[in-house]
Simulated scan of single mutants.
Amino acid sequence: MNPLIVNIAIVAAAFVGMECVAWLAHKYLMHGFLWFLHHDHHQRDDGDFFEKNDYFFVIFAIPGIACLLLGLYGGFNPLFWVGLGITIYGFAYFIVHDIFIHQRFKILRNTNFVYLKAIRRAHKMHHKHLGKHQGECFGMLWVPLKYFREAKNAAAK
């Protein structure tokens, strides 16, 4: 098989896998024993630009960087492509979560794209719960179909 196709498949699989990892980490770690780092993301008190929750950016970057380095050391072995998929997911997370949803930078504000409206609505439903329990919608890119229906119905009005 063509090595380029294999490498692209590894990057895509790592990217998709990271959505699963992010969902699990968000539900069971961030809303679990690491709540002390995540709680300020749900209950902003200060108005500072940075949150304790931002430490997760560093925590989740470590596996991607490690895979990239180990993959380079081995001459672009599969670990490099896994690390690239993880890194691309991290970049997508930053764009979607921090810029589009939470507007940490005032760009990408308005959209009529149903998928983006569904993501924003699902995340809003996640944040309606201020505590670590009774949460919903822990993913970023994969959200329940009901939010797509809501976004589509709102666009039709």
Score class of each variant (00 low, 15 high):
residue 119 I to M: 15
residue 96 V to S: 02
residue 120 R to M: 07
residue 96 V to P: 00
residue 121 R to T: 13
residue 122 A to T: 01
residue 79 L to Y: 04
residue 80 F to A: 04
residue 106 K to S: 14
residue 111 T to A: 14
residue 71 G to Q: 00
residue 94 F to Y: 12
residue 71 G to W: 00
residue 101 I to E: 06
residue 122 A to S: 12
residue 76 F to D: 01
residue 88 I to P: 01
residue 77 N to I: 07
residue 101 I to V: 15
residue 75 G to V: 00
residue 109 R to K: 15
residue 114 V to F: 12
residue 107 I to N: 05
residue 74 G to A: 04
residue 89 Y to V: 04
residue 79 L to M: 13
residue 121 R to H: 04
residue 121 R to K: 13
residue 76 F to W: 11
residue 112 N to V: 15
residue 69 L to N: 05
residue 93 Y to R: 15
residue 70 L to E: 04
residue 106 K to R: 09
residue 118 A to G: 02
residue 99 I to P: 05
residue 117 K to V: 13
residue 82 V to Y: 00
residue 116 L to Y: 09
residue 83 G to S: 11
residue 100 F to E: 06
residue 104 R to G: 05
residue 100 F to D: 06
residue 108 L to G: 11
residue 114 V to Q: 05
residue 95 I to K: 10
residue 121 R to D: 10
residue 119 I to C: 12
residue 114 V to M: 14
residue 105 F to A: 07
residue 111 T to S: 13
residue 107 I to R: 06
residue 96 V to E: 03
residue 114 V to H: 05
residue 78 P to I: 03
residue 101 I to L: 13
residue 114 V to I: 15
residue 91 F to N: 05
residue 110 N to R: 09
residue 116 L to N: 07
residue 71 G to I: 00
residue 105 F to N: 08
residue 109 R to C: 14
residue 67 C to T: 02
residue 70 L to V: 08
residue 115 Y to N: 08
residue 101 I to T: 13
residue 95 I to F: 13
residue 113 F to E: 12
residue 121 R to S: 08
residue 94 F to V: 03
residue 99 I to G: 07
residue 91 F to G: 08
residue 98 D to W: 07
residue 86 I to W: 02
residue 104 R to W: 05
residue 96 V to F: 14
residue 76 F to K: 09
residue 71 G to E: 01
residue 75 G to W: 04
residue 120 R to K: 13
residue 121 R to M: 06
residue 112 N to S: 14
residue 116 L to G: 06
residue 115 Y to Q: 12
residue 99 I to C: 11
residue 114 V to G: 12
residue 74 G to V: 01
residue 102 H to F: 00
residue 68 L to C: 01
residue 118 A to M: 09
residue 97 H to W: 04
residue 89 Y to G: 01
residue 100 F to K: 08
residue 116 L to E: 05
residue 118 A to C: 09
residue 73 Y to A: 08
residue 82 V to G: 02
residue 118 A to T: 05
residue 90 G to T: 06
residue 115 Y to V: 03
residue 94 F to D: 09
residue 84 L to P: 01
residue 107 I to G: 09
residue 72 L to I: 10
residue 79 L to V: 02
residue 87 T to E: 05
